[in-house]
């Protein structure tokens, strides 16, 4: 297997230095745990390097991977939470559970449908523009705009219902 060329190695190092701290910080805000944030950021870079030569926009790829890994992490921790309290919409409501008492907005974002959650995280949290998010997710820009509107509306409604 051909190793990375010297120029590529330098490019990887540059990208790592440029992007890792912010990516890991971005993930930490979502998972609220330094160790998990490092694991996810490192895994994102590992996957990036595994297919380095075929990428046109490495930074977008990094954030897409990280978004998916965060989603997987939430699913895992959600299952663990569900072992002690029912949180799904299909299940009986837990009168003791109020979203705002959990981890506020982050917990509510976990509950967003995938269709709304990815553009929400990439746009509002990753800082990508509408066009970039649309390209990353393969959806029309207008759809992304509508998804962001609906995501915010759901969060606002949920926070309102939580008694704020």
């Amino acid at each position: 297997m051909a190793r990375l060329r010297t120029s590529d190695k330098q490019a990887v190092e540059d990208l790592f230095n440029a992007c890792y701290p912010r990516l890991a910080g971005w993930v930490r805000r979502l998972v609220d745990d330094d160790e998990t944030a490092h694991e996810i950021a490192s895994e994102a870079f590992t996957r990036l390097l595994s297919r380095w030569s075929g990428l046109d926009n490495p930074q977008s790829y990094l954030y897409m991977i990280a978004t998916n890994l965060v989603r997987d992490h939430w699913r895992k921790t959600g299952r663990e939470r569900n072992a002690i309290k029912v949180m799904t919409a299909a299940g009986p409501a837990d009168p003791a559970y109020h979203p705002a008492q959990d981890v506020d907005v982050r917990a509510l974002i976990e509950e967003l449908p995938e269709r709304l959650r990815s553009p929400f995280l990439l746009h509002y949290y990753g800082g990508f523009g509408l066009k970039e998010v649309a390209a990353m997710l393969g959806r029309p820009e207008g759809t992304i705009k509508a998804d962001l509107f609906h995501a915010r509306a759901r969060l606002k409604a949920a926070l309102g219902e939580s008694g704020d």
Binding site: V12, E13, F16, P21, G25, H38, S42, F45, T46
Partner: peptide
Amino acid sequence: VTPLYPPPGSLDRIRRRAR
């Protein structure tokens, strides 16, 4: 977003795993 800097040796470990 507060930057979270990598622990020492992170890039080397990532490169090994990627290879």
